[in-house]
Design a protein around this nucleic acid. Structure first.
Lengths: 146, 146
DNA sequence: CCGTTATTGCAAATCATTTGCATTTGTATA
DNA sequence: TATACAAATGCAAATGATTTGCAATAACGG
């Protein structure tokens, strides 16, 4: 029983945020909405190569989306940034396979910890975001090691 | 009652891990051990400029420490990596001020969540690390905004 | 259809980090 | 104390993903 994903209405979303409906941006949002996991720029480029956009254009589109709040950039590692739709999606966290970089979402949230954090913090008064992630080995890689 | 920090025995630590006791590496570890918060490379370079090491040398030293497990690299942001001693230190998490980048440690841990994560995960069987961080506004910046 | 503005392609710039290589330094051993 | 080897360093050059400038193009409201 694999989770069924439905493409969002990319055009409506672009319009809502005042972006123009270009082939690349529509496809970027659709690809993101159809993915079960956050995707790196490289993979997004591959999956949208049908529209043949310049790398610079892809970066600009993603940055615009992130700034607008449509897309969330997840920094897994110094050189590894993953993108996922932030609109119409439940806030989730992630677990990353250290061997093959598989990323899976985790339906837990640590929102409830925020108040405790504020209480013990010496310097902070307000928290508006948090992130939690795990590193591990996925089943496939565990098998491969043996 | 400000927390009192004591410098570690950097030379003993270097020896323990089979590193040579050079001026830079000794000083790097001492600076890290005397800091209440994780530090970026730029700041480490400034604080060790007495020994006048080349940037490449500093990067190499830090990378060697991270690989050896003496130092932990904390990826706050795509372009922001902070270093802290991982030896003889309790495992902690962090909160970062989005305005001035102040970083504070949080004495909470989400170790206990790992088992739950494994249970609900479709692809993962083993977790060996986790990270949790918060973003907020520190008191100083909150005041400045007004 | 027109005018405005966002978006794009292309090439060049950026900039932190890494790497190659010759030289120096630390340290174990004789 | 001298010798020898690997580790650490400095310097310069390379790297490589991301960004930027600028002119051309495309989307969209009027």
């Amino acid at each position: 029983m694999k989770k069924q994903l439905q493409p969002i209405d990319a055009e409506a979303l672009l319009e809502e945020y005042g972006f123009k409906k270009t082939a690349l941006r529509i496809m970027l949002l659709e690809v993101l909405s159809l993915s079960t996991m956050p995707l790196p720029v490289a993979k997004l480029a591959r999956k949208t190569k049908k529209v043949g956009a310049d790398p610079a254009t892809i970066y600009r589109a993603l940055n615009a989306f992130v700034e607008a709040g449509i897309v969330t950039a997840l920094t897994v590692d110094k050189t590894k940034v993953l993108y996922e739709l932030s609109v119409s999606k439940t806030h989730v966290h992630h677990i990353v396979c250290d061997s093959c970089n598989t990323v899976e979402s985790i339906p837990f949230c640590i929102k409830s910890i925020e108040q405790q954090v504020i209480k013990v913090s010496r310097q902070f008064k307000k928290i508006y975001d948090h992130q939690m992630s795990f590193k591990g080995t996925c089943r496939k890689c565990l098998r491969a090691v043996r």
